[in-house]
């Protein structure tokens, strides 16, 4: 018993806790599958020019709507562009817009949430009302208006989509900061004379980020879904750029004649979203201490 405790204490510290976190994260096999899938898509997106056999935007008028062949593994689209290459570059668009939109939303939302929780009173009320107003506008109407103003580049799309999920992060951060502000350990630190900014840096922020990280991971999937939806409707990413949603939209008339043209982008979208959600679930479980052993 004694030796066990000492041995455990011997290799303590950050390294041990990181290992513990990873063990908790990959404890469930399904999370491991999700993580591997996510990494696979990320790698494809990163090295898209190397993976894709063709330029996704080069139009070959003579080779439209071809089936599977050694030259074009998934065939070609109605402009004769290589479908496989377009899907590879589509992953790039999806992940880039999804991740950027989430990052901006999480950062801006957290900041506003902290402001709301810190100042309280009238500031808090104004911010909350603003969030409610933003939520009350249907997101398609909102994005259409913003696309009309900003244009539909990839970065613009990210900014536009983030505007629809900012309220969520504001509320989340505000709630988590408020609950932490009421906890005994904050009182303890205050009573021992800790200065205000150190209190935030040392105690409040580290404890409030984990729910944000969890929801951010889960939010990436939602934004990707949203981007595809918008592209499908034609108000997403600008036209020649490959987006899964846009490909599905283009391919819709050919569902009966060229099923692979529709199914391949759908399958990519579904696979990526499932992997991201599994990964997000894993992160949530691993970060929640109540789900991990108390005396690990």
């Amino acid at each position: 018993m004694r030796e066990k405790i000492e041995a455990r204490a011997a290799h303590s510290g950050r390294g041990r806790r990181a290992r513990q976190f990873l063990r908790a994260l990959f404890h469930r096999k399904i999370v491991l599958v999700g993580s591997i899938g996510t990494i696979f898509f990320v790698l494809i997106a990163l090295f898209a020019p190397l993976v894709a056999p063709y330029d996704p935007n080069v139009i070959d008028k003579g080779a439209y709507l071809l089936g599977m062949s050694p030259l074009h593994p998934l065939g070609t689209d109605l402009y004769g562009r290589d479908l496989f290459s377009r899907l590879v570059f589509g992953a790039r668009v999806s992940l880039l817009t999804g991740v950027t939109a989430t990052l901006i939303a999480a950062a801006a939302g957290s900041l506003l949430g902290i402001v709301a929780a810190y100042y309280g009173g009238i500031v808090d009320k104004i911010l909350l009302r603003a969030c409610e107003t933003l939520d009350a506008i249907p997101y398609i109407a909102l994005t259409m208006a913003l696309v009309a103003i900003l244009g539909n580049g990839m970065l613009n799309m990210a900014v536009i989509m983030c505007s629809t999920c900012v309220p969520f992060f504001v509320r989340m951060m505000r709630a988590s900061v408020l609950s932490i502000l009421n906890s005994d350990y904050i009182l303890a630190a205050k009573l021992s004379g800790q200065s205000e900014w150190k209190l935030w840096l040392k105690h409040i922020l580290p404890n409030s980020v984990s729910p944000i990280i969890v929801s951010a991971t889960q939010n990436v999937g939602n934004t990707i879904m949203m981007e595809s939806g918008l592209s499908f409707l034609g108000i997403g990413i600008s036209v020649p750029m490959a987006s899964w949603g846009a490909i599905i939209s283009e391919a819709r008339p050919y569902l009966t004649t060229h099923p692979l043209y529709v199914l391949a982008p759908c399958a990519c979208l579904a696979a990526l979203i499932i992997c991201l959600n599994l990964f997000g679930d894993g992160i949530r479980d691993a970060l929640d201490p109540s789900l991990r052993g108390e005396t690990a």
Binding site: S183, D184, Y185, A188, N207
Partner: peptide, 18 residues
């Protein structure tokens, strides 16, 4: 404050978990 400290009821919530 340095000469006056406090012990809390709940040993779970009175220590910063991180």
């Amino acid at each position: 404050r340095s000469k006056l400290s406090m012990i809390f009821q709940d040993p779970f919530s009175s220590l910063d978990p991180r």
